[in-house]
Design a protein around this nucleic acid. Structure first.
Lengths: 214, 214
DNA sequence: ACCCTCATTGCACAATCGTATAATTGGCTG
DNA sequence: CAGCCAATTATACGATTGTGCAATGAGGGT
């Protein structure tokens, strides 16, 4: 007579936490902060709302964890891009190119990042993650630039790194939110030539690239 | 015995609409989309929630109007910046400089803009406003660039305009969200030199600038 | 000076939010 | 195989959300 309880599997804590975090990120990317409700997150993760409070002290706590996970993933992806390169110029080109093509340059990612902005402002822990991630990006960019002849001094490398980072971020933003306004590979090409102009060096053309016939 | 009704003034329709739109923008800038509830908006505008539905068919309708108002204001501000300039190089410098200092470069503005991103995705009308505004910015930038010697062809001016626009947007984003990471006037200086490098021309130093002692 | 109209208020409503907590049941332990 | 503990479900609760609608009074037209 009474509705029967749904069956379930016990999962290790880490796996559950990751599943809930992944669900929260997905929903936030698709529909913004308002779409990432505890019920929607639980359903997406294949569980029930109550479980969220078992693994996270509050929804804000889950939001914090989701933000940190997103930032860590983005950092890891861009690090991997430069890992295969041998000389700094090649690393620079790979860094720029991978930042300006999918899956990094993507509308859902831009909106996901944007959706966190107001949380970041309020939560000190999230603000620290934000600042550390941005400065981490910039410092790695600055290190690559400083290894080029004539740019050794920090007073020279710093503004160049800020400028190059801005080019990447700006193109990432526009290419992600308005993909129809650019031709295939155009954003990436413009990014490479802009960085070349700012640094006064020649950058090798895009290393790999999925094919596409015209 | 019963609580007495609050007194009120009748206002012309346009003034009421503007007041409600301004209140919605303020709240959205301060606390994100979740802070801009109908009750909070009404209170900020000095009225009551019911009145919102008298001037706007729904809250989404008010959100649409607020987005259009914000974009129009930003467009108008940047247009005014280039109006005083005589030659195109000076106009370009003014365009870059005003975009990278207050009140345009401001954390609340960046967060306000970011807060609209998910609404823009869903609402076709807002998407059109977004695209038209971005392309408007870019086209005016491209027109200024095309008036420089050697950049007359659109195939040359277009990628340069996209790159310069990206520099401005990226610096606007970073300078707005992490103001403590930059020295006074640094963002503006970097923007001008980056655009100079991309276009291969010399840009005049920042026209005016509020003083500040070290 | 009165009246009529509509801008404005006040309130009620269903839906949905995050949260708290009791009831169950999966799965390791002895 | 029995039993216990904690991972998980289910349900309830108060607060808040956008919205619908009737009552009201401000202020211009006559």
């Amino acid at each position: 007579m009474s509705t029967e309880r749904r069956s379930y599997r016990r999962e290790p804590e880490e796996r559950r936490r990751e599943a809930l975090i992944a669900a929260a990120i997905e929903l936030m990317a698709e529909g913004g902060p308002q779409a990432a409700t505890v019920r929607a997150i639980a359903e997406r993760a294949g569980t029930t709302p109550g479980l969220i409070r078992h693994y996270f002290q509050s929804k804000d706590d889950l939001t914090r964890a989701a933000y940190a996970a997103m930032m860590n993933r983005m950092t890891a992806e861009s690090e991997q891009a430069t890992r295969e390169a041998r000389d700094p110029v090649e690393a620079l080109a790979a860094f720029v190119a991978t930042s300006l093509r999918p899956p990094v340059m993507d509308g859902e990612r831009v909106r996901l990042w944007a959706g966190f902005l107001h949380h970041v402002r309020r939560d000190p822990a999230m603000r620290d993650v934000h600042e550390a991630t941005y400065l981490g990006y910039r410092d790695r960019l600055q290190a690559m630039i400083a290894s080029l002849p004539g740019n050794e001094a920090a007073e020279v490398a710093r503004p160049l790194a800020i400028a190059c980072n801005a080019v990447i971020d700006g193109l990432w933003l526009e290419g992600g939110t308005l993909p129809a306004s650019f031709a295939e590979g155009e954003v990436e090409r413009i990014g490479l030539s802009a960085v070349s102009a700012i640094l006064g060096i020649a950058l090798p053309a895009l290393p790999p690239m999925p094919a596409r016939e015209d």
